[in-house]
Design a protein around this nucleic acid. Structure first.
Length: 189
DNA sequence: AGTGAGATGGCCT
DNA sequence: GGCCATCTCACTA
């Protein structure tokens, strides 16, 4: 079994974590079975000073309270009335920052598409019950990849940010170029 | 290929 | 009431 990432991996700067999660393995244990995928697309959300982040202005609410946990916890929220999105919390409790996992490449036990944040949560059975959990050895964790993947990284503005948002052009989306499982969505104009 | 609308519901002001 | 860190389908061309 691959080595599980230590919690201090997540204490680093959020952009560093977003870039370095590319290639890592997301593992979901559900009813005694393993579902796993290689992370190929992420986005950084920079907490109190990021107008596109749920915790902008350091406002804490029922929905976003998991962002105020220490790095290495999950933040799962419900969006558009039908989808969940999965994030990894970074840094310390003082900084409500996180990395959105936007797409994974299926490796094991996956039966449907994983090339988007809502779709990968369906494929890996990630929902609100997994919100706020430590990503160590529970039903959901992230592990090193054993083989070195030769891949280039690309970046862009984040997807789905309102055109009125001051942070809509911030280049905080990272992905493995030429990977077919990167989402097809494009930033708003 | 690109655009636009609808599904669908919790949360915030 | 309006806004969403989405996705799919139907439409134009």
């Amino acid at each position: 079994m691959n080595k599980i990432l230590p919690q201090d991996f997540y204490f680093n700067e959020t952009v560093w974590v977003a870039k370095n999660l590319l290639g890592k393995i997301l593992v979901r244990k559900y009813r005694g079975k393993i579902r796993a995928g290689r992370i190929v697309e992420t986005e950084a959300y920079l907490g109190g000073d990021d107008p596109a982040c749920h915790s902008f202005g350091y406002r804490k609410s029922l929905r976003n309270q998991s962002m105020f946990l220490a790095g290495g916890h999950s933040y799962v929220y419900f969006i558009y009335g039908m989808y969940f999105c999965f994030n990894v919390v970074t840094k310390s409790e003082k900084y409500p920052e996180a990395v959105l996992i936007r797409a994974v490449e299926p490796l094991a036990g996956i039966k449907s598409a994983t090339n988007g944040p809502g779709k990968l949560c369906i494929a890996m059975n990630i929902d609100k019950k997994l919100d706020g959990l430590p990503l160590n050895n529970g039903p959901l964790f992230i592990a090193e990849s054993e083989e070195k993947i030769k891949s280039k990284m690309g970046s862009s503005a984040r997807i789905g940010i309102s055109h009125k948002n001051a942070a809509k052009d911030w280049p905080l989306r990272f992905y493995i170029t030429d990977n077919p499982y990167v989402s097809k969505m494009t930033p708003k104009a």
